[in-house]
Amino acid sequence: MTDRNLNEFSDEELILEFQTNGTERAFEILVQRFKNPLTNYVYRFLGDYDGCADIVQDTFVKVYRYKDSYSSLAKFSTWIYTIAGNLARTEYQRRRRRNFFSISSYGDEEKTFDIPDNSYRPDVTADASIKNEIIQKALLKVRDSYREAVILRDIQELSYEEIAEIMQIEVGTVKSRINRGRAELQKYLKDIYYD
């Protein structure tokens, strides 16, 4: 089978080829297709680039080792997003446990603290890169279940149905989480969206 042919394959056809014939090239193509979207998704969730690269690599290692557990009934993208999401969530919780005595964990666990930072003043946020950084920091303050839904919908631009499948929840719950996540994010970014 030539490279050109494999590149024309859908995700599901590629994983099927890798499952049945053990074609390593099919797996490599899948890695090329999903490494950047997954890196983006995990980075937005964790906020740490080195950590997100490890998690995405672990995701592909799992796909490689447990390729037979994939069922052709599901979309490959939702399957791989579910694996990456689970790994990211586990890592996030591990880090939170590690920083148990950090300032953010004092008092109510769900409550987050707004640390005054003068660099976030509206007159300073003109620069796009700083704005992006502010958004990313605000995103990390949002509750993790809301954050995941917002990232998958507004950054990864997946459908509600795909998000429901990845997060293994109902579509209605997905919508509700997205709305709450957005509202929370808007609250943290009130300095930018002051009008």
Binding site: N36, C52, A53, V56, Q57, N132, I135, D154, I155, R182
Partner: peptide, 18 residues
């Protein structure tokens, strides 16, 4: 907010990822 989130720069995997 949604537009800003969509326009966030896409983070790419490191060079030596493979």
């Amino acid at each position: 907010l949604i537009d800003d989130l969509k326009n966030l720069p896409k983070v790419e995997a490191p060079k030596n990822f493979e």
